[in-house]
């Protein structure tokens, strides 16, 4: 596996890990839409951007 690829896979792993940790720690008492709801939506958006960048050189 290339260095660049390893970087992206570690980044994705970290993002997923944060999606477990943050809602169950700092956001457990945030009873608002901008608590866990927003965090998980942001995770989804960041994942889209990351995948867009990883695949940018895939050509026909």
């Amino acid at each position: 596996m290339e260095k660049k690829e390893s970087f992206w896979i570690i980044l994705c792993g970290l993002l997923i890990l944060l999606a477990y940790i943050i809602p169950y720690t700092v956001l457990t008492d945030v009873v608002k839409w901008y608590g866990s709801f927003l965090l998980w939506l942001l995770l989804g958006l960041v994942i889209i951007v990351v995948n867009f960048v990883i695949t940018k050189d895939w050509r026909s």
Partner: peptide, 17 residues
């Protein structure tokens, strides 16, 4: 439920690898 599904969604990044 959103977290559950978004973590699945993030897992689809495996397709990029």
């Amino acid at each position: 439920a959103l977290g559950f599904e978004m973590i699945y969604f993030a897992g689809v990044s495996l397709v990029a690898f």
